Structure formats: C-alpha cells, structure tokens
Simulated scan of single mutants.
Amino acid sequence: MSTTAQPTILFDGVCNLCNGFVQFVIRHDAAGRFRFAALQSAAGQALLVAHGQQDVAATAADPDSVVLVEGGRVYTHSTAVLRIIGHLGALGRMAQVGWLLPRAWRDALYRYVARHRYQWFGQQESCLLPTPALRARFL
C-alpha cells in the first residue's frame, strides 16, 4: 500500500499541543487508519508539493495548521481537525456539532489557539520520534 493511500495527518513536529493531538488520534484510532508526518519533515513537504500545496509547504518553518491529506484532497485548520475526529468512532459523532458552526468562526478559533500554542503548551527542540511499534505509521 502506498504511503498516501491512507489518510495522512501532517502536524507541527515541535509543538506540544500538536504532538498531544497526534497521541490522542493514535490512542483512538484502533484500526490504524491514519499515517503521520511532521510538516517540517522531507516526507511532509513532499506530500504537500505532490498535492499542489506549495504555499502550505512554504510555511513549514512556522506552521499554523494541522493538515489532513485524504482521498487526494488537502484539508487544513478546523476542517482537518473535524474530519480527523470524525473517523474516531463515538468521538466523531460528538464532533458533528462542530460542523454546525460557520467555517469562518471555526477557523478563527483554530487560528487563535494556533497563534498561542507555543506560549500555552510549549514546544520541543526536535520533532516527535515514534516508538518502534508506531514507526510504520509515520512517514
């Protein structure tokens, strides 16, 4: 199976909030549906460029969004998060409420948190290193 056949979550590899989100998805994705890559990684950059997202790839040094690559499409900001959570069983059903808000409102809240994430949650010096058991799920 190609590495892009499964939905792939691209995340800020040095952000503690983003790493926590990835750990949350791993814990609740029993089927192992998602793959992961840091936005700053060569694999993450290549995936964005392959999907015509050079503008997103160019901001990888200071990313402001979780990115979901799924079914040949690229989703960012609140839409990416809601789509990801939507695949996580009961959590996904609860997340349906988020779709009721206008995208502009959802994304404004998302960007507010993204702007303050390092201040509130901190950051690491380097990207998350997966455990040997999870290594196959990371690009």
Score class of each variant (00 low, 15 high):
40 Q>H: 04
8 T>L: 15
23 Q>I: 07
6 Q>F: 11
93 R>W: 15
110 Y>S: 00
41 S>M: 10
109 L>P: 01
118 Y>M: 09
126 S>G: 12
51 H>K: 03
136 A>K: 12
104 A>F: 14
55 D>Y: 08
27 R>L: 10
68 L>C: 11
84 I>D: 04
139 L>H: 10
18 C>L: 11
101 L>W: 03
65 S>P: 01
69 V>G: 09
99 W>Q: 00
46 A>L: 06
115 R>Y: 04
41 S>P: 12
95 A>T: 06
77 H>T: 11
93 R>H: 13
15 C>Y: 11
79 T>P: 04
58 A>P: 09
56 V>Y: 10
31 A>N: 08
30 A>C: 05
1 M>F: 09
133 A>S: 01
43 A>K: 05
56 V>W: 08
61 A>P: 09
131 T>C: 09
30 A>F: 09
2 S>R: 13
50 A>T: 10
54 Q>A: 15
15 C>L: 13
110 Y>G: 00
99 W>K: 03
122 G>T: 02
101 L>S: 00
38 A>E: 10
121 F>M: 04
48 L>E: 12
30 A>S: 11
24 F>Y: 15
88 L>D: 00
11 F>C: 09
8 T>M: 15
43 A>C: 10
74 V>L: 07
95 A>M: 04
1 M>A: 14
60 A>C: 02
13 G>T: 08
81 V>Q: 01
74 V>M: 06
119 Q>M: 07
120 W>V: 00
98 G>T: 01
72 G>W: 07
105 W>G: 02
135 R>H: 13
116 H>N: 06
130 P>I: 04
76 T>K: 15
138 F>R: 05
25 V>Q: 05
20 G>V: 04
104 A>H: 10
62 D>M: 10
117 R>V: 01
88 L>N: 00
7 P>W: 14
75 Y>M: 14
29 D>M: 01
90 A>W: 15
38 A>G: 12
67 V>C: 08
121 F>W: 14
116 H>C: 02
84 I>C: 03
7 P>N: 10
63 P>N: 00
45 Q>L: 14
75 Y>I: 03
80 A>M: 02
17 L>Y: 12
78 S>Y: 08
100 L>C: 01
136 A>T: 14
93 R>I: 03
137 R>K: 06
65 S>Y: 13
84 I>F: 03
136 A>I: 08
25 V>M: 05
94 M>F: 14
4 T>R: 09
91 L>A: 06
47 L>F: 07
14 V>Q: 13
131 T>W: 05
18 C>D: 11
119 Q>I: 01
130 P>M: 08
95 A>Q: 01
83 R>I: 06
40 Q>M: 04
34 F>N: 07
24 F>W: 07
65 S>T: 05
36 F>M: 10
88 L>Q: 00
72 G>H: 03
47 L>H: 07
29 D>T: 11
132 P>L: 06
117 R>C: 01
74 V>K: 07
133 A>T: 13
123 Q>G: 06
58 A>E: 14
45 Q>F: 08
86 G>C: 02
76 T>R: 05
102 P>Y: 11
116 H>L: 04
126 S>Q: 13
62 D>L: 06
20 G>E: 11
34 F>Y: 11
19 N>M: 12
41 S>Q: 03
50 A>S: 13
42 A>M: 09
79 T>I: 04
37 A>T: 01
8 T>W: 06
28 H>A: 07
127 C>D: 14
68 L>A: 05
124 Q>R: 15
37 A>I: 05
128 L>P: 04
70 E>A: 12
53 Q>C: 15
52 G>V: 03
120 W>S: 02
94 M>T: 06
35 R>G: 14
